[in-house]
Simulated assay, not measured.
Amino acid sequence: MSRIKIVLITVVLPLMLSSCFGRYIVTEKEVRRHYAHRDRKPEMRMIKNDTLTLCVASVGADTLPMLLLIHGAPGSRWGYMNMMDDPELSHRFHIVSVDRIGYGKSRLKKRRYVTSIDTHAHSLLPVLSLNHSSEKVTVLGRSYGAPIAARLVSLVPDKVKELIMVSPVIDPDTEKFYWFSRWGRMSIVQWFLPEEFNAATAEKYSHSEELKKLLPIWHNLKVRTTVIQGGNDWIADPSNIEFAKKHIGSKRAQYIFLDKAGHMITFSHLGMIKEMLMKNALFQDRISSVNSDVLGGGN
């Protein structure tokens, strides 16, 4: 291998990848700076058992309905910082954002990277026990986190109020690869990249096969489901929303296509997502109030 090629692979390529995908990773230093002068800060918690460690950030009382946020690849719990910082959302929800195993401080014992969607979904089950309300959970997954969210919902449908998939990568036939994708698998390149990038690369190269394993669950998905897709998304092919329409079996599903939106809809269209969440929570409050009056006999 020529010296120039070695320089390109070991120096230039890692810098390019870090520049392209760095926006999806928030460093601990950036988090400390962000919350340095804020009164309200997320509560940090570690969930540990014999097989895994999960790092969780949460805001809002744990007696409120849980809003569980699942990030993509690469990503972290801090990818939903703007939602955790919203005072109205944290007043209405127990917002829980979790590092998936292989990202941040979350790990599966004796496994460096985890590519199985099923394993990711099962690993998140302990998070549900953090909530002490009697309400069902709303699960929101973005990008690669969307199919994991769907699988999680399929495991505990009776505990879920709603599934929201934003910029979902769920169609096994439209997985996108780029000119630099294969270089990211080289050990010499991975040596210079953050672990989150390498975990994302491992997921990418098995994602299509993992999505095929998920095909049977879509028809049996009966909870209220919302799919939000952008027309200018360069990571999740916009046709993913058509896959969702074809395969999701829920009669309470809605599909929102934002023609000019990119991949990071939870940032560009936070107001829309927030309004949707707040309206759904308010509706549930009214139902609970009516039920309470009926049970109490009323006056």
Rank of each mutant, 00 (worst) to 15 (best):
R3H: 05
I4D: 15
I4A: 14
I9E: 14
V11N: 03
V12C: 01
L13M: 15
Y24K: 10
I25Q: 01
V26I: 15
V26N: 11
E28Q: 09
E30K: 10
R33D: 03
Y35W: 05
R38F: 00
R38C: 00
R45C: 03
K48D: 11
T53K: 04
L54S: 06
A57P: 06
V59Y: 00
G60M: 01
A61T: 09
D62V: 00
D62R: 09
L64V: 12
P65T: 02
L67I: 01
L67A: 03
L69M: 05
L69V: 00
L69R: 02
S76Q: 03
S76V: 01
R77K: 13
Y80V: 00
M81A: 09
M83F: 00
D86F: 03
P87C: 05
E88T: 08
S97T: 00
S97Y: 00
I101D: 11
R107P: 15
K109Q: 08
R111E: 05
R111P: 04
S116M: 04
I117S: 15
D118C: 04
D118F: 06
A121Q: 01
L124T: 05
L124G: 09
L128T: 00
L128S: 01
L130G: 02
S133N: 04
E135P: 03
V137Q: 02
T138K: 05
T138F: 04
G141C: 00
R142C: 07
S143P: 02
G145T: 02
P147R: 10
A150K: 02
L152I: 01
S154T: 02
D158E: 15
V160P: 06
K161L: 11
L163T: 08
S167T: 07
P168Q: 08
P168D: 05
P168C: 07
F180I: 13
S181Y: 10
R182Q: 09
W183L: 15
W183E: 04
M186K: 03
M186C: 08
S187N: 14
V189L: 10
W191Q: 12
F192L: 10
P194S: 15
E195Y: 07
A199P: 11
T201Y: 13
A202F: 02
A202I: 00
Y205A: 11
H207M: 11
S208F: 08
S208A: 15
E209M: 12
L211Q: 11
L211D: 14
L211R: 08
L221Y: 13
K222G: 08
V223A: 14
V223Y: 09
T225H: 09
I228V: 06
Q229I: 12
G230N: 06
P238S: 11
I241H: 03
I241Y: 11
K245R: 15
H247T: 10
G249Y: 05
K251A: 09
D259M: 10
D259S: 14
D259E: 15
K260P: 07
A261D: 04
A261L: 04
A261P: 05
G262M: 02
G262P: 05
I265E: 12
T266I: 07
L270Q: 12
E275N: 13
M278N: 02
A281P: 08
L282S: 11
L282P: 04
F283P: 07
Q284H: 08
V290Q: 05
V294K: 06
